[in-house]
Nucleic acid binder design. Structure first.
Length: 936
DNA sequence: CTAGAGCGCTCG
DNA sequence: GTACGAGCGCTCTAGC
């Protein structure tokens, strides 16, 4: 019970509980409770902080009153003012959610008041209590580092950043905002907040806002006199966005009149109940803290059961897993047996799934069987499409020895489980199986994917195929598929494999998948890649699956006509080349071309490849082509050859007979940097740079009544470089929409922008790209065809003008050497195992390490856009079809192209937030057309 | 006959 | 010895 009335001499500590645990979660290493793996890192950080305060606060400055304050409810009065408030908040990380109620328990265990109010943010409760305490003559310390609370500082109110052990007073606020606390809301109203989705005044950041507020005295005065501002952009935005700015102020202004159902007196400091506190700490298994608290309270330390530590990320698989015993694998041939598997799955809540089919092409593959696994060693195979090797007849349920269930019956039994929200389906490369099942009307969800888990954990270390993962992380070599299917001409499809053999093979795949999942799952948060996996990898599976199944219409006649035209021209060139060479030879053989050029014709400047063959790459041939016909004609021939074989011919073979469309396949875990890779066919390298090549894109068409719509990020990697390396001139240029290569040229060569020549700009452009690739004098010299010393001079000059670039490169390489990986802005890890190598390897590894965060961040950004795109355009007659690294291609009803562009652009331009606040804008260019050539 | 290495070219 | 990241078609050869 309160014995004193809050007033002069009292000191109130207000702890921002919600903000603290969120920050602790991200800042501290991930701890789990040893007995069951429950994530408790944030709770541990919280308890340590509380205990430290209790210990420290014994002197005259000790608090007399304390409260821990939490957010409650996702809808607050601010959402009534502005429905997009905090609209782009990301879902709470899976490992944090269970820790929130535990933090409340911890507060109560320390016998500290724990306060929250439905529909209010913790900030408003803190504001109200702070005002009340100050008005009563007391002092207040707000334990938080949230800048939104800085408006409350002053008059005996200070903030304290518990993680940095730093007091923030009026001067501290000025340091952060450039204004004193009474004007913080004005600055915030102008600068906005990407994290909370407070709009503010576009183009005005904290610095400019502070400048304006200091000049005009207040936001209201500034808005009234906005017409006087000299800078046209600022004047315009302040005049036109006045309503938005005023709304922003209301959103950031904290409410000092929150209707509380308690008083300050209820917050008086109370001694903890030792028993309750010790019980809680022991339950959490905080060994060190429990002992320290017990010593402090003068009670006995309770025993905490000692269990073997969780396997570390590098440790081999859990030894208790049973051996792979194929005899235990079950072949399911009837409904009753399948039902028993279904009930086992329901008991567990998860199941590993694998499908066997007749083809690697999901759009052509026929389902042959499904395997399931519910615990290591306990797996089954359900044959549904096996055929007699000789006759090709499907085995029926009555066939002796080879009996199997009808496909429809098996799927009908499995469908409810595979689509059940409460049952996790685990697969290795789930996109494949999900597409096969989708073609049979089953939408598999929710899923986990061991291939993608491995990608998040081990990106850059090795590939993520099941055979390799099994051998590396389970110490088990899986049954090879080769002996079952054979190879080459005599290869058979899986439907002709004997059911007994198929059972051993397929059930083992599901078994391995489940075991890999058990190994990888706890390692995700140990390695701090849970969010990467959950936001950048896993959600892409259904999105890409649908894109691939949609496919894109490709006009066979267009390709066929082009093929014929190319063939004619090639025949002419071939004859000409034979004539010039004085012999008949295979023009497609680089070795022969080299011999003729450098041995027979003795042209100068020949270089050998590492196998001793003459090098005949296009840049070598281009140098010779100015003087001789032969190399010039070879170049012509090669261009046509490439277009014909790779594009006009091969693409026709990829047109699906049923859909008339081309269905590529995206590898999610293929590229080290996080980029996707497109295969079978690769639709990410369709020609565009030359006029002739670009015509291939005319064959990629929209259905009648529809259009293709293309949106692509403008200069995304350079923008990310400007942000990461923090280059003021580049950031400013992007903010102002200035031609970035011209700006670079101007800075480097001291040429004013309005006197820029195309050649100077071209050089600067090459340097800009070189920087992204981990520039070297040699590489730039080769690219620009200038002496190496001159190229090195350019690079030196560049580093002089943009010193941040050099330090970014050095820091990135140092980080890689120390940690063995580099990271993107979104936390994706790219391992760099070769970074400490000696010799030429080192150079490669170094440049790759410099490039990876840039290329990888760009890849993360478009992944985020793709995941958000489907819901954003769900109500429009539009489909996302292709991704080409910085471009998304859609097929859209003619009437909806503009709406789609608007919607898609918003998603793409905002894709970094709220996780990352880029210091440069992302901009997107759009195009529409009947075909891809027109749209791009 | 087949698999894989080497070369060269396409894209971002 | 060199720009970063990918996939694929062709030739050529080692090995069945």
């Amino acid at each position: 019970m309160a014995t004193t009335t809050f007033g002069k001499g009292c000191h109130l500590h207000l702890i921002d509980g919600s903000a603290f645990i969120f920050r602790a979660f991200h800042a501290l290493p991930p701890l789990t409770r040893k007995s069951d793996g429950l994530p408790i890192g944030a709770v541990a950080g919280f308890c340590n902080m509380i205990f430290k305060m209790v210990e420290d606060n014994t002197g005259p400055d000790a608090p007399t009153h304390v409260a821990v304050v939490f957010d409650k409810g996702s809808h607050t009065f601010r959402n009534d003012m502005y429905d997009l408030y905090k609209a782009n908040r990301e879902a709470m990380p899976e490992d944090l959610r269970p820790q929130i109620p535990l933090t409340r328990e911890a507060t109560l265990a320390f016998n500290i008041a724990c306060k929250e109010l439905e529909g209010y943010e913790a900030d408003d409760i803190i504001a109200t209590l702070s005002c009340q305490a100050r008005d009563a003559g007391g002092r207040v310390t707000i334990i938080s580092s949230d800048k939104d609370l800085m408006q409350l500082v002053g008059d005996g109110v200070v903030m304290y950043d518990a993680m940095k052990s730093k007091v923030i007073d009026r001067d501290g606020v000025f340091e952060k905002f450039g204004v004193f606390p009474e004007h913080v809301v004005d600055v915030q109203a102008l600068a906005g907040d990407a994290v909370d989705n407070v709009p503010g005044a576009p183009g005005i950041g904290i610095k400019t806002a502070a400048l304006l507020i200091n000049e005009y005295g207040s936001l209201e005065e500034l808005l009234d006199r906005a017409g006087e501002i000299k800078q046209p952009k600022r004047r315009e935005v302040l005049t036109e966005k006045r309503a938005q700015i005023e709304l922003s102020k209301k959103l950031v202004q904290l409410d000092c009149n929150t209707p509380l159902d308690f008083t300050l007196d209820d917050l008086e400091v109370r001694d903890p109940d030792p028993e309750a506190l010790m019980t809680f700490l022991a339950e959490m298994e905080f060994r060190t803290l429990t002992k320290r608290v017990a010593d402090k309270l003068g009670v006995e330390t309770p025993a905490i059961p000692e269990k073997p530590a969780e396997a570390a990320a590098e440790a081999p698989a859990a030894p208790e897993a049973p051996d792979f015993d194929k005899a235990r694998y079950d072949c399911v041939r009837d409904a009753a047996t399948l039902e028993t598997w279904v009930s086992q799955i329901r008991e567990r809540g998860y199941v590993a799934v694998d499908t066997e089919t007749t083809s690697l092409d999901e759009m052509k593959a026929e389902l042959v069987g499904i395997s399931l696994c519910v615990e290591p060693g306990h797996a089954c195979y359900i044959p549904v499409g096996h055929r007699d090797g000789a006759s090709g007849d499907l085995f029926g349920s009555d066939t002796l020895a080879e009996g199997q269930m009808p496909l429809d019956q098996a799927l009908a039994i499995l469908k409810p489980v595979l689509e059940d929200d409460a049952i996790l389906k685990i697969g290795q490369n789930m996109k494949y199986d999900a597409k096969i099942l989708a073609r049979h009307g089953i939408e598999v969800a929710p899923i986990d994917d061991t291939m993608l888990m491995s990608y998040a954990l081990h990106g850059g270390l090795h590939n993520h195929g099941m055979d390799l993962l099994s051998e590396t992380y389970l110490g088990h070599i899986p049954i090879p598929i080769k002996p079952l299917l054979g190879s080459g001409k005599s290869a058979i499809t899986f439907d002709r494999v004997k059911i007994d053999d198929a059972t051993r093979y397929a059930a083992e795949d599901a078994d391995i998948t489940l075991r890999l999942w058990q190994v990888f799952k706890p390692r995700l948060h140990v390695a701090r890649v849970t969010t990467v996996y959950e936001t950048l990898e896993r959600p892409l599976v259904p999105v890409l699956g649908r894109m691939e199944m949609s496919g894109i219409r490709v006009d066979r006649d267009t390709l066929s006509r082009m093929s014929n035209a190319f063939a004619q021209k090639m025949a002419g060139l071939e004859a000409e080349l034979h004539e010039l060479a004085g012999e008949s030879f295979n023009v497609q053989s680089a070795a022969k071309v080299g011999e003729i050029l450098f041995d027979k014709m003795s042209l100068p400047g020949g270089k050998k490849t590492k196998t001793g063959q003459w090098q005949t790459t296009s840049d070598v041939l281009e140098d010779l082509a100015t003087e001789h016909d032969f190399p010039a004609r070879v170049l012509d021939y090669r261009q046509l050859q490439k277009l014909k074989s790779t594009y006009t011919d091969a693409l026709q073979d990829h047109i699906n007979a049923e859909t008339g469309r081309v269905h590529t396949s995206y590898s999610i875990a293929g590229a080290n940097t996080g980029r996707l890779a497109s295969t079978d066919p690769n639709l990410q390298n369709i020609p565009v740079r030359t006029e002739e090549g670009r015509r291939i894109r005319e064959a990629f068409v929209a259905e009648p009544g529809k259009k293709l719509v293309s949106l692509d990020y403008s200069q995304i990697e350079l923008r990310i470089l400007a942000h990461i390396a923090d280059i003021p001139q580049l950031k400013q240029a992007f903010a102002d929409g200035i031609d970035i290569h011209a700006l670079t040229a101007s800075e480097m060569f001291n040429v004013p922008l309005d006197e820029m020549t195309p050649d100077i700009r071209r050089r600067a452009k090459a340097i800009n790209f070189g920087v992204i690739y981990g520039i070297s004098g040699f590489g730039l010299a080769r690219n620009l065809r200038i002496p190496r010393a001159e190229a090195q001079g350019f690079i030196d000059r560049y580093f002089e003008r943009f010193p941040g670039i050099r330090s970014y490169m050095d820091q990135t390489v140092d980080f890689a050497k120390e940690h063995g990986f580099v990271q993107t802005l979104f936390g994706r890890k790219i391992h760099t195992p070769e970074i400490n190598a000696k010799g030429p390897h080192a150079g490669f590894a170094r440049r790759a390490a410099i490039n990876a965060p840039i290329q990888g961040t760009a890849a993360d950004v478009i992944r985020r856009a793709m995941v958000r795109m489907e819901p954003a355009i769900a109500d429009l007659p539009a489909k996302m079809l292709l991704q080409v690294h910085d471009e998304l291609l859609f097929e859209v009803e003619e009437t909806a192209t503009e709406a789609t562009i608007a919607r898609a652009r918003e998603v793409m331009e905002g894709a970094a937030s709220p996780a990352v606040h880029l210091a440069v804008p992302l901009t997107v260019d759009a195009g529409v057309g009947a075909n891809w050539a027109e749209a791009h």
